[in-house]
Design a protein around this nucleic acid. Structure first.
Lengths: 247, 247
DNA sequence: CGGCGGTACGCTGTATACAGGATGGTGTGC
DNA sequence: GCACACCATCCTGTATACAGCGTACCGCCG
């Protein structure tokens, strides 16, 4: 393989490297603080430096990589302060987005379709969950995450303000990584499920205020669970220079 | 000049190209819809494709360039819908930031220093402005913009939440470009001056609620002025495919 | 004269080459 | 034994080469 084809869209190397690295970072296979040398990553993933370079820049924009011009890029550390700041910011954006969707849904039924669908999926999941034994419950987490993932996506898609949508989307990577980190057991999951149901019901009802409140509550609960886990599991994550930005 | 030095920080080619293009776009020297070919820009600015590429990607993040993978990058068009969406988003972020700064200032006097300073500069400017003839007034716009610019910078710097700060900063490019577009005459400027004074007073007083309201008011007024100008001056800007994103 | 096909150009994506710093380890001097 | 300096190594920034893809212009045919 000498030179690359343009192809861009479907098979683009840059995109592939980006997705791969993103997945590895979100799943914590790449630990916070890990060095991301362009050449090394390139060799490992069978790509040249150029696409790797671009992928790393994009990951930096997503907040998953700490990038300083002359230095080696590193997987962004996870700090308590950083998590708090992230959720404080999400608390500003996402409740507003949820409210906006509820309002839009009240005016145009069509935007509610995916949300009614999600609500149904959620109810089905809820009903079947209790019947499972502990092992099967843990395995079903993935399915639940799929629903929450779809919910987030649906909100972004339904968001009428492109700036708001993009900013929320840009934060998703960090959110996903943190979720993979909080193995909070079934209790937190059931609570989260209930919170999602509340959000979905408010949105499909067209109740903007309730949707906003439900979203805010969900974020607050998630943050609390995350803090509990981060402080109990001593976080060896990101032992490298830990500039806690929020103070 | 064969190959480049690393130097990065001070003389970095990529940074230079970025700043240059950014300035040209903000000042409308590069018109909305203009094509930005990597090779062409590179030749014009005496840089190779690599730094140009990176600069264009960064400008896309700033919302000043529309970038689609396989295609030629273009200077982002200016649409009424886009401007509305931008300001709607700013209305979500900046009042919160202003309030946050006011709160922080009430707890720690030191964060107020730059704001007291700005307030003084503003008062001085205000006093001297009336004495000028029309021509000198127009020339003094630059000085006023300096103050507003410094104000925005100061808010960003004082912002405790790095996510909020970064997002506001990322929007600055578009804001600046729009400002260069609204030659609203002295009346709008004097109003803006008054609005800034209100924000500064609220912040230095430590009154978060007033700061938030003042900021909101300022943004609403600015948007209104902008809309007036955009609709009166028929905006030939961005005649290329105008996907108005906000509907 | 209008529609259509072919060709030439330009563009991006990718790969690779080269030069200058930054970093980390090792050896030496105090 | 410790601190400092030197050196090897790696890594990034930049430049350039090559391959495919789209487009636009031009000529040809109906």
């Amino acid at each position: 393989m000498k030179a690359g084809r343009c192809m861009a869209r479907a098979t683009g190397k840059s995109e592939a490297v980006y997705e791969r690295l993103k997945g590895d970072i979100e799943s914590l296979r790449l630990r916070p603080g890990a060095k991301l040398s362009e050449v090394q990553v390139g060799e490992e993933l069978g790509a040249s430096r150029t696409p790797v370079r671009e992928a790393i820049r994009r990951l930096a924009r997503d907040g998953l990589v700490d990038f300083v011009p002359g230095e080696v890029a590193r997987v962004a550390p996870i700090s308590l302060g950083g998590v708090r700041a992230l959720f404080e910011f999400r608390m500003l954006l996402e409740p507003r987005a949820a409210a906006s969707v509820a309002t839009a849904g009240a005016a145009d039924e069509r935007v509610l379709v995916p949300f009614r669908d999600l609500l149904k999926r959620l109810e089905e999941f809820d009903e079947s969950f209790g019947a499972l034994d502990a092992g099967a419950q843990v395995r079903s987490y993935t399915k639940f995450y799929d629903v929450t993932e779809s919910f987030d996506q649906a909100v972004i898609a339904a968001c009428r303000n492109p700036y708001l949508a993009r900013t929320i989307r840009d934060l998703r990577g960090q959110t996903v990584r943190l979720r993979h980190l909080s193995h909070s057991g079934p209790r937190r999951m059931l609570n989260s499920l209930e919170e999602h149901r509340a959000m979905l019901k408010a949105i499909t009802r067209g109740d903007a205020q309730a949707a906003e409140a439900a979203c805010r509550h969900h974020l607050a609960q998630t943050l609390q669970a995350l803090i509990d886990n981060l402080t109990s599991q001593d976080l060896t994550f990101g032992r490298d220079v830990q500039v806690d930005i929020t103070g």
